[in-house]
Structures are given as C-alpha cells and as structure tokens.
Amino acid sequence: MINMIQPSAETENEFVKSQLIQYNLHHVPAAKEKPYQLIGYHIKDEAGTIIGGICGVLYWGRTCLQIDILWLHESYRKQGLGSALLRRIEQEAVAREVHLAHLETFDFQAKDFYIKNGYEVFGVLEDCPIGHERYYLKKKL
C-alpha cells in the first residue's frame, strides 16, 4: 500500500532531485560529465565593495547556460556594466561549447535590457505575481 503524501524535508527533496537527474542522464548522455556547473562573475568598486554580479549554471553536458541572477547597484546602472557582465558570462559559455543561453525576468525588471542584448522572448507567464508578467528569454550563442 502506498503511504499518503507527506511534507518533504531537505533529504527527501535531494533524493527526488537526484532521481530526476539520473532519469535525465539516460536521455542526454553528454550530461554525465558534469550535469550542473555553477558559473558567475562580479564587479567591485575602488573600495572593494561588490557593485554587481551575474550567476548562472551550465547544464546538459555544458551545452546550455541558464542565467539565474544579474544585479547591479542602482548607482552603477546604465553605464554598460550589466551588458559587460552578460557578455563575459556568454563568452565563457561559448568557450565551453555552450550553444544556448536562457533566463527569466519580470515586467518590472530587465526585459528590454535583455532584448537589447540579443535575447528574444519565447514565453510569458501572466499574473505571476498577480498584476505582473514573467518573461522567458533565450539567445543562441
């Protein structure tokens, strides 16, 4: 008999995640080398304070780049630093034979910035959160 659905602790979540990864590896054998690899860059000011950064993950045998976070302190925006961080992570991805980058952003964040940097919208999730849109973007590298 199957037990009732129960809340998961971190160990159960990690087990479920590992099982899905194992399943995925059967369908994308190239991913066995390193299924997920974190990648990121940051910028510091003259005082050594971090003023911006970009974080992502290479996956599927390092053929795809998912950009998770791009942040710049407000006083350093619109100076080309965000585009420089984006180009840097893309350059590293290309050097590792990545062919596709993707990300998500909200209507109150940076959709137009990403489009200006060569990304295209391939999906929109409306009312996420209520009254806003979540955009999914991609770029061939």
Rank of each mutant, 00 (worst) to 15 (best):
E14R: 11
E14C: 02
E14S: 06
F15W: 08
V16D: 14
V16E: 15
V16F: 08
K17G: 07
S18C: 08
S18G: 11
Q19F: 08
Q19A: 12
Q19H: 11
L20T: 13
L20K: 10
L20A: 09
I21W: 01
I21L: 12
I21R: 10
I21P: 01
Q22N: 15
Y23V: 12
Y23F: 13
N24D: 12
N24E: 09
H26M: 07
H26D: 03
H27G: 10
H27T: 02
H27K: 11
V28P: 02
V28C: 05
P29S: 09
A31T: 08
A31E: 06
K32G: 04
K34F: 07
K34G: 05
K34C: 12
P35N: 13
Q37S: 10
Q37N: 07
L38C: 05
L38N: 13
H42W: 11
H42E: 13
I43C: 06
K44G: 03
G48A: 10
G48C: 05
G48D: 12
T49S: 13
T49E: 14
T49N: 12
I50P: 00
I51N: 01
G53W: 05
G53E: 07
I54A: 03
I54V: 15
I54Q: 02
C55Y: 06
C55H: 05
V57A: 11
L58C: 03
L58S: 02
Y59A: 09
Y59K: 08
W60H: 11
W60Y: 12
G61D: 09
R62N: 15
R62A: 14
R62Y: 02
T63Y: 01
C64R: 03
L65I: 06
L65M: 09
Q66V: 04
Q66R: 10
I67E: 12
D68Y: 03
D68W: 03
I69G: 03
L72T: 05
H73W: 00
H73R: 03
E74C: 08
S75M: 08
Y76L: 05
R77A: 07
R77M: 04
R77C: 04
